[in-house]
Design a protein around this nucleic acid. Structure first.
Lengths: 195, 195
DNA sequence: AAACAATTAAACAGTTTGTTTATTTATTTA
DNA sequence: TAAATAAATAAACAAACTGTTTAATTGTTT
């Protein structure tokens, strides 16, 4: 007979608790209580608190990422793919109060300058998505023949900078406008074609 | 030489911490840290944690109440006084994220049906304000000669019901409209004067 | 009814917290 | 400038809490 509790539900519930209280103040008893079980039972589903936290965060980042992937996949025009990717990445985060609040509480999840990125694997997937769109654009002759490896890292760095600014001050609408400006600048360039 | 820390600042800082984490998870070390002192020092300013919480809440309720009192005092027409009192009471709470969040975490602060009200003294002041406006209106012949003692309790009960509904679901705009409907119903009655 | 699975309740070691107090640092006074 | 006083920190302490494990109980399946 399989376990009665779904691990996805555990991650979602854990996310809510970690988001509200942060890693330190959230207790295994809090999470177990929200799940309607005792903390002893929770240990049958998860290794320990730190592992639960790490997996909870990873799960949330993956969900966010896969939503973007899905939105992009629905497009055919490579330029639209790029624009959709940029727009949805930001939109889906702004809609996810739990993940955003968690990022506020634990900025190390998504560091700007840290030596080591705890979720590097997941972020590499994001870079890979960017790279695949750039490559497709170049192959179709719709994008200029830039270095897709390097430029995908650059785009991810810029994107990350905006994400960090946005979740710190979610209500600053100027940031959204500036982000759109940046997408426009990257896609259409600065120079007028007639110059 | 007087204490270096202002008790009002302590209450305001404590409110922020209790609001964010709730009484249980908030620690004296959290509060002291926000104040830039050690928890040992904090005990020179406050008796103990429970006492600090009680006074912090009382202080927040008094601030809210005195802002309403001040807005009402600026009016001369008794009908406007009544409308302003109703409107500002709700508006000031909706603007106070810290107090509202604290009420969400600890509904016993402002109970609907509890046997005992922990802040009865402060709430009696609110009832007294309502009563004084009703009495002035009756004295001036502008209000119908209702029982000011009883009706002030009734108005406070209705007001409390709305407050509780509002801080539980702060984003439900229908409640604001319904509250205004209620104020209108109370002030102008249901029957048309021409009937 | 027995076996197995899932969960709870209890236990435990380590950590944290509320509170107090000894010590140190800062300020004032003579 | 030294002594006295005030304010704060650091350390201590008892109690409570927490992460984790395990014995006992309850639920389900065979």
């Amino acid at each position: 007979m399989k376990p009665r509790e779904d691990i996805q539900n555990i991650y979602q519930t854990a996310l809510a608790v970690f988001s509200e209280y942060g890693y330190q103040k959230a207790t295994m008893e809090d999470i177990a209580g929200r799940l309607g079980m005792t903390k002893g039972n929770l240990y049958l589903y998860v290794k320990n608190k730190k592992d639960l936290y790490r997996k909870t965060v990873a799960n949330a980042l993956l969900c966010w990422q896969s939503r973007v992937l899905e939105a992009v996949g629905a497009e055919t025009d490579v330029r639209e793919k790029f624009r959709i990717m940029c727009a949805k990445a930001v939109q889906y985060l702004s809609e996810d109060n739990l993940l955003r609040n968690l990022l506020v509480r634990d900025p190390e999840i998504f560091p700007m300058f840290a030596d080591r990125d705890p979720y590097a694997g997941i972020n590499r997937n994001s870079v890979a998505l960017i790279r695949s769109i750039l490559q497709q654009g170049i192959d179709e002759g719709v994008f200029r023949p830039i270095d897709p490896d390097r430029i995908s890292e650059v785009i991810f760095m810029i994107y990350k900078m905006f994400i960090i600014r946005m979740y710190i001050r979610a209500e600053d609408d100027r940031l959204h406008a500036m982000f759109e400006d940046t997408v426009d600048l990257c896609t259409r360039g600065l120079f007028s074609e007639n110059a």
